[in-house]
């Protein structure tokens, strides 16, 4: 997904002379086009300066893309993104590679578990979490003209491809990838897991839809209608439950509907804790009960029991309960 992002920046630079790419002691991981070479800078390890410098370039009419690990590009750049980019309307594009648990092998310094929350909290910010490399490719041309600053979370490696070109791409417009009375809302790395879970549920006779919400801010108000039509809704995210996709959806629903109109809604994500273990994205998602087979079990349990939501204590798997 990150490579698709870099490839697109390289391609867009061929025809747009304002595209600038700034790395923080980090290369793009792809061969860049000749056209962008004079507008590609590898800066010292200095995240705050890079974000501020990018806004200075934006003031001169450039379209700067700054790339770094998702943690560093959100935590260390926060004030510059808030005050220099968003407040002063000097749009930059913040590319967060290794979003979520993608770089779990490097531990809690590199696992971006609250990046969406902190970026979303900034006024005038846009937050996008594509689900695969193809969708990243569809997103990137929009970043040339989108008026505000954008955080782009690269939350997985590029495959599997689950997005469809026919569905198109528009910032702020969610995509119903699959219909069903039970609805899973997801984005990023969780979208293909939600689709896999939905298929397995369908095989078991439970029709399950998947709404892919690639833009967490601005949030698509149509989500309210999708939720109202569903029998039960499960919002799954590779992020803590504080301030991410689930929070955003609930805020929208509370503001644009009355409780009686809403079905039961469950949120499943990462615990409110630093991820102090190692491994890879798949292993950790399993540890947090977010892999497709676990989603299936949890949803079945929830659908069959019409009572209180079924939750699992931290550190225990579904099968332990």
């Amino acid at each position: 997904m990150f490579r698709a992002c870099m490839n697109m920046i390289s391609e867009m630079a061929k025809t747009n002379p304002n595209v600038v790419l700034i790395g923080c002691d980090h290369g793009p991981g792809v061969e860049l086009s000749e056209e962008i070479q004079s507008r590609y800078f590898v800066e010292p390890i200095s995240e705050a300066n890079i974000a501020g410098m990018a806004t200075g370039l934006a003031a001169e009419g450039y379209i700067p893309y700054i790339l770094n690990h998702a943690t560093f590009n959100t935590r260390k750049t926060y004030e510059q993104i808030a005050l220099d980019a968003c407040l002063q309307k000097r749009p930059i594009r913040v590319v967060g590679m290794g979003g979520g648990l993608t770089t779990a092998h490097l531990g809690p310094t590199h696992t971006a578990i609250e990046d969406v929350a902190i970026m979303r909290a900034i006024p005038d910010m846009t937050v996008v979490v594509p689900c695969d490399a193809d969708e990243m490719t569809r997103l990137m041309p929009h970043t040339l003209t989108w008026p505000g600053t954008i955080y782009i979370r690269c939350a997985k490696y590029g495959r599997p491809i689950v997005s469809d070109d026919k569905a198109g791409f528009e910032i702020g417009k969610s995509i119903l990838m699959r219909e069903g009375a039970i609805l899973i809302i997801a984005n990023g790395a969780m979208t293909h897991r939600a689709l896999t879970a939905a298929q397995q549920l369908s095989d078991k006779g439970i029709e399950c839809g998947v709404l892919h919400v690639h833009t967490v801010k601005p949030l698509d108000k149509n989500i309210v209608d999708y939720v109202k039509k569903a029998r039960k809704v499960f919002i799954v995210e590779e992020h803590t439950l504080i301030g991410g996709l689930g929070s955003a959806c609930l805020e929208l629903l509370i503001d644009h509907s009355v409780p009686a109109e809403l079905p039961p809604i469950y949120r499943w994500g990462l615990p409110d804790a630093f991820v102090q273990t190692y491994g890879d994205q798949d292993l950790l998602l399993e540890a947090f009960n977010l892999q497709p087979e676990q989603l299936v079990k949890r949803i079945i349990h929830s659908v069959e029991s019409e009572g209180a939501p079924f939750e699992i204590a931290m550190g225990k798997s579904y099968d332990d309960v």
Partner: peptide, 24 residues
């Protein structure tokens, strides 16, 4: 030219503006 008040921001913005001027 720039909103300031949170200290430590102006020089980075200036770096970007100066680099942009040279590129232009």
């Amino acid at each position: 030219e720039a909103t300031t008040g949170a200290l430590g921001h102006g020089l980075s913005i200036g770096v970007g503006m100066a680099k942009g001027a040279l590129m232009r």
